[in-house]
Write a protein that binds this DNA or RNA. Sequence first.
DNA 1: CTACTTGCAAATCATTTGCAGATGA
DNA 2: TCATCTGCAAATGATTTGCAAGTAG
Lengths: 157, 157
Amino acid sequence: MTGKFSLGPVDVEVPPEEQFARFLQGKGKRFTPQRRLVVEMVFSHHDHFDAEELLEHLSELIAQRRVSRPTVYRTLSELVEAGMLRSMNLGGRSVYEHAYGYPRHDHLYCQRCGRLFEFHSERLDQLREAVAREHEFQVTGHRLMITGVCRHCRDEE
Amino acid sequence: MTGKFSLGPVDVEVPPEEQFARFLQGKGKRFTPQRRLVVEMVFSHHDHFDAEELLEHLSELIAQRRVSRPTVYRTLSELVEAGMLRSMNLGGRSVYEHAYGYPRHDHLYCQRCGRLFEFHSERLDQLREAVAREHEFQVTGHRLMITGVCRHCRDEE
DNA sequence: CTACTTGCAAATCATTTGCAGATGA
DNA sequence: TCATCTGCAAATGATTTGCAAGTAG
């Protein structure tokens, strides 16, 4: 729990638990201890996380029998639905990252070590719009993944 | 089989079967009737194809017991390895497209009808290089998918 | 001959679902 | 009260693998 919260009228950041609770309420759903656990776990580290990290943490929870695997999956879907997580697909498994309180970004994927690096590009937004206009497409989002080898891995050779 | 082949010294296009046969040979593998069937099927329509199309065709082959499912999967992997197909992941299943004799492109994905549309952008190539340089990343490829609703689907409302 | 292949059936692996009992508003 | 949840075990669905029998060079 490292979130920064201010009480000013402008920069109030709603903590994830609260945000999620509201979302659930709006759907007539409950904010149960299990869902709370998953949200806390997921938003306890502020870096973006990949499948391995996530599953590691989650399996701890599962091992402790504090939440079951199906509930974890269900809650992750709800978090995506709530717009608090974004999911992508890497090698057949789902990878999640915070979509909440984080700037939009895309990824560099190192095929050697599997690490993900973030970047943001204004030009990409422009490009996206240009392409959409040309194809009369109503854009809702995009996903760009640049694959290659990171500096770290190249140094190791 | 609609490929255009010329005998001129410059513009000779090697047919897919031949291309694949060479690749296999170089690996000490055989160009079997089953592999030939899959290649012919896969390269018989020149548009790019999505999972549904592909599986439809393949299931015919499988139903006729001309090739088994495992062999289809194995051959598709080999075609990717040979650089003749490119694969991406859409909703948990693999989607293939020609990487052979086709210009590089990216996709617009209509989340309503599931159709894929191609586009190419020079600016994206430049952007890719710029990002890579900045992160000292050695690029091997990228994948951009713009999601939204196509004109066709919007018209239908 | 001998290594490479195939098809079958069974195994994986991530994810989902049916359902009976538990629980929060 | 009572609809919403949870966990379990089993189902799914795509893809992979072990293995014995078939086949190309």
